[in-house]
């Protein structure tokens, strides 16, 4: 149980860090990075809480797995939009 507690702390730490950065930073790249860190933190929290007596529940695993793949698509879309905004700001 203690090792789960350690990872729960790490996951919530990541969420807090990402939240702080999202609120204080105006840099587009860092914001996208913070979103990614936020998602990773939530993934760790989910899986740490899904662990029970040495076994990890398969359903949250499947959710997080597809979540990671969707996250990379969202990141690509966000970066494309950010590039577009930047190039329009120039004109």
């Amino acid at each position: 149980m203690t090792s789960e507690l350690i990872y729960i702390c790490a996951g919530s730490g990541l969420v807090g860090l990402a939240f702080y950065r999202l609120a204080t930073c105006r840099d587009m790249l860092l914001r996208v990075l913070s979103l990614n860190v936020l998602a990773v933190g939530i993934a760790i929290l989910f899986l740490a809480s899904a662990r029970n007596a040495g076994m990890t529940d398969a359903v949250p695993q499947a959710f997080i797995l597809t979540g990671i793949v969707v996250l990379v698509a969202v990141t690509a879309a966000l970066l494309a939009l950010a590039e577009q905004i930047d190039s329009q700001r120039d004109e």
Binding site: N36, V40, I44, R51, I64
Partner: peptide, 16 residues
């Protein structure tokens, strides 16, 4: 991997 989710770990390594 330590949390017993190697499937997710593989995806995170490959994608993240």
């Amino acid at each position: 991997v330590r949390l017993g989710a190697p499937d997710v770990a593989l995806a995170e390594a490959a994608i993240g």
